[in-house]
């Protein structure tokens, strides 16, 4: 008698169950997870670089700190996001002090000193300066001189960090 293959066995080899192959997706996710964990920073982004300027790049590894935000973009000088003076007026300005910028800075300094008296929040005199990388030195020095003369002597120049 000829051998008759069992029906039961045939059913087993051709089961109707369809399974998703998730292994490659898991591999991808694992790599992504490791990469993201590596770039994770606990303090988050303290300083948001302005849109209409390109910061210069540097090799410094010093992490950013909080301070009064002064932005010197191609069109405007902004203090904490509020425009105070057109950058183009710096060219025709005599001396190193920019009057509108100084008024604004002194106002902030006064508020901070009031805060120090009332709540004991120490006034650090820190100011972060974001400048476009093509900003000429004569403009930069005027902005810095004004900050220095307006109770903000501790300047932080914001730069992009090149990873070495």
């Amino acid at each position: 008698m000829a051998f008759v293959p069992s029906h039961r066995k045939r059913h087993k080899t051709d089961s109707g169950e369809v399974r998703l192959q998730l292994t490659s997706m898991m591999d991808m996710f694992t790599i992504l997870l490791v990469f993201l964990l590596k770039t994770y920073s606990t303090h988050g982004q303290l300083i948001n670089p302005s849109q209409d300027l390109t910061l210069p790049s540097s090799v410094v590894q010093h992490p950013p700190e909080l301070g009064l935000d002064v932005v010197v973009s191609t069109d405007w000088i902004l203090v904490n996001g509020k425009p105070v003076e057109r950058t183009s007026t710096l060219a025709s300005l005599d001396g190193y002090i920019i009057p509108n910028l100084q008024d604004e800075l002194l106002r902030y300094a006064k508020e901070s000193e009031k805060m120090e008296d009332l709540y004991g929040v120490k006034f650090s005199g820190k100011v972060t300066i974001q400048g476009d990388k093509h900003l000429p030195y004569r403009f930069l020095i005027k902005v810095m001189a004004t900050c220095g003369q307006s109770n903000y002597p501790n300047m932080r120049l914001i730069v992009y960090t090149n990873e070495g």
């Binding site: 993201l36 002597p153 932080r156 914001i158």
Partner: peptide, 24 residues
């Protein structure tokens, strides 16, 4: 985890150069 880390990832690293003037 991935969306969480993506939102807090820093793709552009910023640094600061400190310049402290003596008080005026």
């Amino acid at each position: 985890l991935i969306p969480l880390l993506l939102t807090s990832a820093e793709f552009v690293r910023l640094g600061v150069i400190e310049l402290n003037l003596p008080p005026a």
